[in-house]
Design a binder for these strands. Structure first.
Lengths: 145, 145
DNA sequence: GCCGTTATCTTGACTGATTCAAGAAAACAC
DNA sequence: GTGTTTTCTTGAATCAGTCAAGATAACGGC
């Protein structure tokens, strides 16, 4: 749970001007990991009153480009954002309810980077998405798996 | 390179009626792996004349549901389709030009299915996307990596 | 080979996330 | 404080994909 001044420091550290929308959006992403843009807009507005949706889109792009947040886009979902960065973790997505859970990388620190035949690609990231059913959907619908 | 009658057989095998749009779309996906819907629409029209875009969307959904084609959606891209199925391969995506290459799974037959802490998820698939630069973009822009 | 049922295709409108563009407002350096 | 540059507001636009209703065509049975 980062404090406001920590968030401001993070923004300055990324050479981003400190504005109320930016602090609010960054706080929202910290507090609600894996939220989509609409949820972040609503959270930011609770925080600072009116903020245009365009401002939130702009902020999210700036934060993503500077590496303060990470954008994830599971197939069939709109873009989602999280503030847990730099630790190479992956995600499990529930096919039934869409919930997303963090999954530590099974192999190590910067793993998964070993494509067997890379066809000349210079790989800098391996993104893993585990698809399945979350615990609660398994319980409520045991036949589905 | 599947023949028309092989494609028809595949459709019947999946309990799908054989229609000209379906054969044309299935052929297009075989011939142009990783194509987006628009490219498939154009390829199908070259093949059978007029086909509505809605028909192609319907066909692609039916083929995907029946497992005859696989739908992939790399972040930042529209949906793409491929006919290489059932072998658990993954993809490398070029950040610069967007080209997609097939990558055999590094671990084995149905691998990668081992999330370290699965939080109660019942995982049925692990999808891996390798991000980087393709050989040709590395060559034309060596500073980028 | 023809018929009826049912799935599929055509047409055309619509949705919803995201982006574009132009001007107003606010951060920050000096 | 002032000026410059970035950021925010407002409002329109884009584009992939979906929805809906009626027309058409596959296919099983006769």
């Amino acid at each position: 749970m980062a404090t406001t001044s920590e968030l401001e420091q993070a923004l300055r550290g990324a050479a981003l001007r400190v504005t109320r929308p930016r602090v609010a959006v960054l706080a929202a992403v910290h507090e609600h990991p894996h939220s989509d843009t609409d949820a972040i807009i609503r959270a930011a507005r609770e925080d600072v009153g009116d903020v245009s949706h365009q401002a939130v889109y702009d902020v999210l792009r700036a934060l993503t480009l500077s590496g303060l947040v990470r954008r994830i886009e599971p197939a069939g979902s709109v873009a989602r954002y999280e503030a847990r960065i730099g630790d190479n973790h992956h995600h499990a997505v529930c096919r039934s309810c869409g919930v997303i859970a963090d999954v530590d990388c099974a192999v190590g620190a910067t793993p998964c980077l070993t494509a067997s035949n890379d066809q000349g690609f210079v790989i800098d990231e391996a993104e893993v998405v585990y698809w399945g059913l979350c615990a609660s959907c398994v319980t409520s619908n045991p036949s589905a798996h």
